[in-house]
Design a protein around this nucleic acid. Structure first.
Lengths: 153, 153
DNA sequence: AGCTTTAATTAGAAAGTTTCTCAGTTGCAA
DNA sequence: TTGCAACTGAGAAACTTTCTAATTAAAGCT
């Protein structure tokens, strides 16, 4: 993945290398804040804005994806192969779900309900409760910004 | 819908009636800010927090859905029937897409890739460019928080 | 290696979004 | 009608993201 960064014209700085390495190794879709805190010991002078800038640059270059699937901060996904996501309404955890290859072929088909809308990708969102939250019981809620309203559609 | 508000134990205040009426009549998935500004002429003393509180209460009661499908503020959806969404990567517009009834039956099926995850709903997200943005040309971007990184997966 | 160009980094401020506090008000069940 | 619990309004606070300006550093070329 590091080689890809160069290939897109982005400069290979130590901060970027660290961010890319950390993100590529992490399947849990970390937030910018989480990455920042994990990297702070190694790069104590790195600015928080650099994490945002870098993730934004990576996403713009098509090297990672920014996910906004639930309230709260964006999460970043190093997996650029087509796939779906399972989102926990309690803790906000996002998990990859491999997509059936045959269904991915439906991408770019016109939407009868939205004439003129040019579809570039289709993803499926499975909303529910992850195993950990289910085990923790019904009274638990994730700290901070999540609440019952995290449920959508 | 107003009757439903009472039915869930929520009190029927003038503010709530106005918010519910405005939201129910609007298929464009308005943000809290948009609703607040539209209602301000009629309810000039209403607080912005009241709009958030009310929408949160409605969503918790299952009378509307809070959508977080793209960067930027949450959008609210009065349509509680199962359906999908088309999201414009440029302007952030969200449009309803009716769901095939037979596919909705797949809800609650276990996910082999995420054992223990209890699926409560499945929705499909079509990402792309809406007709208006496509007509406006490739150089246009939506104001504020959107950018190329709005693309996900 | 040194120079140049250009992009990236830092730190902090600012903007935007959402939640919280608390005093005062009001819907509504009894 | 009365009392209680829930709601509202106003502002502050917390959180997320973007921006600014000055400095620093990477990449390509000699």
């Amino acid at each position: 993945m590091l080689a890809c960064v160069r290939a897109t014209g982005l400069k290979l700085t130590p901060q970027r290398m660290a961010i890319v390495r950390e993100l590529a190794a992490d399947p849990t879709h970390p937030t910018a804040q989480e990455l920042f805190e994990r990297l702070r010991p190694a790069l104590p002078t790195m600015s928080f804005a650099t994490v945002y800038n870098t993730l934004d640059a990576l996403a713009s270059a098509g090297l990672c994806a920014a996910l906004s699937l639930a309230p709260g901060p964006s999460r970043f996904d190093p997996n650029m192969k087509p796939h779906h996501h399972a989102v926990c309404d309690r803790c906000g955890e996002v998990r990859d779900i491999p997509s059936d290859a045959h269904r991915a072929a439906a991408v770019a088909r016109a939407l009868p309900a939205a004439p003129g809308f040019e579809v570039r990708s289709v993803e499926q969102i499975y909303r529910g409760v992850c195993a950990a939250c289910a085990a923790a019981g019904a009274q638990e809620r994730r700290p901070g910004r999540a609440s019952a309203r995290a449920r959508t559609s």
